[in-house]
């Protein structure tokens, strides 16, 4: 009996020594992070710099106007779903910039894995809030971190369409975005954007060139035709036309299904997906019906 109490006392002393050693070891349980790159690769300081550079384009050049910004929650996860257009789509930076500026909330832009393969550009894209659109990434952002994620379900089919097909929404993938929102237990907030199509319209495409360069598409844009004589071919390929941007946030859609399910009824998923597509399409038609011209809005 005596021995056992002694041994427990001894153990206590030993554990105290271990704790002391751990305490003197200043590295234990500490973080020595130097940058503000978060676990998705987004860096707030890079974002700040991006915002500084992009703000004149956002407010002076595109003269972006929001409608219904209050429908985006101040906290909690939500999946923002929007239409996607323009040869180098400006809608993603406009939406991300607008929400970060007005609501002071970070937005993660889910996009194709292809961005990751780009040297320099891929890293900048990631630091500026771009995340590969993997279901597990989306779930982590929406469910675990309760943040906002922006997704374009049209994918590459949106920006690669010709100007003659402008403002005609393409197929919304396979409804994966609905399934992710259901699984994460967050609402979907549809957003309709008008202006991106006119900022860089595609006149024609060269499939053989894009194949050779392993690019998603290789377009000839109106910008290149109009601007090359003045600013040269390279700047003309990346410069936008001064289209007037209008962004309308539609009513959030909540799903009455339990979260964290492995699978959801494909019927329901595709129904919801089509429903969202129609709502965005209708909003775009409504906005275009009240637009005088692409430049003044």
């Amino acid at each position: 009996m005596e021995k056992s109490t002694k041994s427990t006392a001894q153990k206590e002393v030993e554990s105290k020594i271990v704790k002391l050693v751990d305490k003197s070891d200043k590295t234990v349980g500490q973080s020595f992070r130097q940058s503000d790159v978060d676990r998705w690769g987004r860096s707030e300081s890079t974002r700040q710099l991006t915002r500084k550079i992009f703000d004149p384009i956002y407010s002076k050049y595109f003269r972006t106007e929001w409608d219904g910004l209050e429908k985006i929650p101040a906290k909690g996860g939500a999946l923002l779903v929007s239409n996607h257009a323009g040869a180098i789509p400006p809608d993603a930076p406009v939406i991300m910039h607008g929400i970060e500026k007005e609501l002071n909330r970070p937005v993660y832009g889910l996009a194709d894995f292809w961005f990751r393969t780009l040297p320099i550009g891929g890293t900048l894209w990631n630091r500026a809030g771009g995340v590969p659109a993997h279901p597990s990434n989306a779930y982590g952002i929406l469910h675990d971190d309760q943040q906002l994620a922006l997704v374009f379900p049209e994918g590459v089919k949106g920006p690669s369409k010709l100007y003659k097909d402008r403002y005609q929404l393409r197929r919304f993938g396979r409804g994966g975005f609905v399934e992710i929102a259901m699984r994460s237990g967050v609402p979907i907030i549809p957003i309709a954007v008008v202006g991106a199509e006119d900022a860089m319209p595609i006149l024609t495409k060269f499939p053989s060139v894009s194949k050779a360069l392993s690019l998603p598409y290789f377009p000839l844009t109106l910008n290149q035709v109009l601007l090359t004589p003045f600013v040269g071919p390279i700047l003309a390929s990346v410069a936008y036309l001064p289209a007037k941007f209008k962004v309308r946030v539609l009513d959030p859609i909540y799903f009455d299904v339990p979260p964290d399910q492995l699978r959801y009824s494909k019927t329901k998923v595709l129904d919801e997906s089509e429903n969202i597509r129609i709502r965005i399409q209708d909003a775009i038609y409504d906005m275009l019906a009240h637009r005088k011209n692409p430049w003044l809005g």
């Binding site: 590295t27 234990v28 020595f32």
Partner: peptide
Amino acid sequence: YKYTTSAAVAKFCE
């Protein structure tokens, strides 16, 4: 865990 990723690097350097 006793060490985070950054702490592991710091400890190694120390």
